[in-house]
Design a protein around this nucleic acid. Structure first.
Length: 653
RNA sequence: GGGCCCGUGGUCUAGCCUGGAUAAGACGCUGGCCUGCGGAGCCGGAAAUCCGGGGUUCAAAUCCCCGCGGGCCCGCCA
């Protein structure tokens, strides 16, 4: 057997050795026992080794022995000598078999691998590289990206980075939702203001114009509806309309107070129109139909807003490869064609002039109930494809877009909030209906839960939201205070550079750290915690590792890894060796938060290590050299882990 | 009414997919550690009916069933 000196995944080498040795031992002890899989667990404490098997609990049932007796018997026939990574095996507890790693071998392999692979250590490549589109962010171009949205770009970007590191060819797409009433409303307001490019941050200005325009037009619309309703409609409906009108009226007061000049300018201009509704509706219809005037106007406003988005995302180092316009699928006829195709299937029915898609029938015909994780009795609601007036709906237009994406790549990951779970499923079902069963299965909805603010109801109606820009500003400002306090000697330029890295890293970490299925409550405390369990804490550990390496004179010359016997050393080594497996799990199962968790845990171990044990000047020199190699490997792993999340690892802070 | 997601020390989170040994970490509280590689740090302490009740299993925070609490969805909005 050739002894391997390096590996893309040192802990996996150890794991494989354990499987082999256990298989051998089992075939000697219980030749007739058939074991399907060898699952190993990480024991609760290092005293139990690095891996353990509970297989004896199962096997003992079939023979007349206790699990512990069997474990002892199996361990007895094990010969670890052909396996350099295994130091020893033992039977323990009620019947576990524990496998202890040889730390000298494991650390040697781990440190060498980290040094040689460097920026690639841990980024284990897939055997089946695929082309993948990650669609993320896709905030409507009518207001800025706010904290409620911010989890999307951060998660999407981390996913894209992880999948790229895994060897896939990833393309990051932004779906610009420019069709529909909202875009027409902002275009209308923009037109009324004389089509001047707004001052200040573009998406923020667009957001304000949109909110005010929408407020004024809604009030006028409701007033008219109310007048009509008073004539004919039941009292109940009148009350409802009145309530809605009151809501908007109070929003108007609020908005006028905050933006008096803009509000009155828009109010004056809109009041000159007899019925703004006509113009807005005209724009909605004209834009979807591809009429030149509407096209120019709406595209122009959207572009302005997107320019602002790009600035925000650039600052967060989140980059997109493609901006896909919803309207282009309407204009090139794809939407109409898709609708025609769908109409030919048995899954579309009419309710009056409205077209409905029978999602439930597709589930039944294609036998998808179990596959989609649906309960037996559950009926998937139908999806409206076309309004009575012939215009389409959002999800309808998403069908040709999804096909377009799926025809270009082998897998599409849509980073979309989980509140859209149903429509994402209906979308997938339309693909089945259209006969694209094969590619439909390549469409993945990466769902995440909402971000909420305590004691602060975000309201797009009132234009009250905390923008991602504000979060970054505040995070960077606080980081600057910290840097100034802690490293007053640094030149200001460097302080600013560091506070950017720290502040933005802190924001990203807070949004990516939590399991996407769980909601995040946004508080400044949470995001800007510069202490434990945060990006700054991990970044600090990285900076300290760099600092030690700077102070040490040169590379380790003659390390003796067998001297790394302290628990604090071993804990760190094992984590470094495990990083590739953690990465693999994150990449295969799309779990970016596990990377954040790992990085934090490694920083914990490393901090304990270097405060307790001296690196530079340790005696003997071979020990100092071995520890130096450990520090360098930690630096590499911390940096590689942070980079997967789009967080920069600073060398000083 | 139906469906999905979440529920773990006072607070926030990991673990749940793939069951396994004393449920891990952080904040807060509390007691220590700066003439030794950067104190954004380290070492200790108190603190948990893993929402409740059944079930499966040698073994349940984890799997199944029934509840409870919170959020979301079921639109000719996006």
């Amino acid at each position: 057997m050739v002894r391997r000196l390096t590996s893309v995944s040192p802990f996996t080498e150890f794991r494989k050795s354990c499987v082999t040795i256990l298989e051998d031992a089992l075939s000697k002890t219980l030749p007739r026992a058939s074991v399907l899989s060898f699952m190993f667990a990480v024991p609760p404490s290092p005293g139990f080794g690095e891996l353990s098997s509970s297989i004896c609990f199962e096997l003992a049932k079939k023979i007349k022995k206790t699990p512990l007796e069997l474990a002892k018997q199996i361990v007895k026939v094990m010969n670890v000598s052909p396996f350099p990574l295994i130091q020893s095996t033992q039977a323990a507890g009620g019947g576990y078999i524990n496998f202890h790693a040889d730390y000298a071998e494991l650390s040697s392999m781990t440190f060498k691998s980290a040094q040689i692979l460097d920026t690639e250590y841990g980024h284990v490549k897939t055997d089946e590289p695929k082309s993948i589109i990650v669609e993320h962010t896709s905030v409507n171009p009518i207001h800025p990206i706010h904290v409620g949205h911010a989890r999307n770009p951060v998660l999407g970007d981390a996913l894209a980075r992880i999948l790229t590191a895994h060897g896939h060819k990833v393309s990051r797409h932004y779906y610009v939702d420019d069709v529909g009433r909202q875009s027409a409303v902002i275009a209308y307001g923009y037109e009324k203001l004389g089509k001047l490019k707004p001052e200040g941050k573009l998406d923020h200005s667009i957001g304000t114009i949109y909110t005010i325009t929408s407020c004024i037009t809604e009030i006028q619309r409701l007033k008219r509806e109310l007048d009509q309703a008073k004539e004919s409609a039941p009292a109940e409906e009148v009350t409802k309309l009145q309530q809605e009108l009151d809501d908007w009226a109070s929003a108007a007061v609020d908005l006028e107070g905050r933006f008096p000049q803009l509000f009155n300018e828009l109010l004056g201009a809109i009041n000159k129109d007899k019925n703004p509704e006509h113009r807005v509706n005209d724009l909605v219809r004209g834009y979807e139909a591809g009429e030149e005037e509407a096209k120019q106007l709406i595209r122009e406003v959207c572009q302005i807003c997107i320019e602002g988005f790009r600035e925000t995302l650039d600052r967060a180092e989140i980059f997109l490869d493609s901006w896909d316009w919803e309207s282009s699928f309407a204009w090139n006829g794809d939407v109409a064609r898709t609708l025609d195709e769908l109409k030919k299937t048995p899954y579309v029915f009419r309710v009056g002039d409205v077209l409905e898609f029978d999602a439930e029938k597709v589930v039944q015909d294609f036998d998808l109930k179990e596959k989609l994780g649906l309960r037996k009795g559950y009926e998937v609601p139908s999806l409206t494809l076309m309004r009575a007036d012939g215009t389409t709906l959002y999800t309808t237009r998403d069908i040709p877009y999804s096909l377009w994406k799926l025809q270009r790549v082998e897998k599409v990951i849509n980073v979309v909030g989980m509140e859209q779970k149903l429509s994402q499923m209906q979308l997938k079902l339309t693909l089945y209906a259209l006969g694209h069963r094969d590619i439909a299965e390549n469409l993945i909805h990466f769902a995440y839960n909402l971000v909420t603010l305590p004691g602060y109801v975000m309201s797009s109606r009132r234009g009250r939201y905390i923008t991602m820009d504000e979060v970054m500003d505040e995070a960077v400002r606080r980081a600057y205070e910290e840097v100034t306090k802690r490293s007053p000697h640094l030149p200001d330029e460097q302080k600013r550079q560091i506070s950017d890295i720290v502040g933005i890293g802190a924001m990203k970490y807070a949004l990516v750290e939590v399991d996407p299925a769980k909601p995040v409550t946004f508080t400044w405390d949470r995001v800007l915690d510069f202490e434990k369990n945060s990006a700054p804490y991990i970044q600090y550990s990285h900076a300290r590792a760099c600092s030690i390496l700077r102070k040490a004179s040169g590379k380790p010359k003659n390390p003796d890894y067998s001297l790394l016997t302290k628990p604090k050393e071993r804990d760190t080594i094992v984590m470094l060796a495990r990083f590739p497996e953690v990465f693999l799990d994150a990449a295969k199962n799309l779990r970016p938060n596990t990377i954040a968790d790992f990085a934090n845990a490694l920083a914990d171990k490393f901090n304990s290590f270097y405060t307790a044990l001296r690196v530079i000047g340790a005696e003997p020199v071979e020990l100092g050299d071995a520890r130096l190699a450990l520090v360098d490997a930690t630096r590499i792993v911390l940096r590689n882990a942070l980079n997967l999340l789009g967080i920069v690892a600073p060398e000083r802070m």
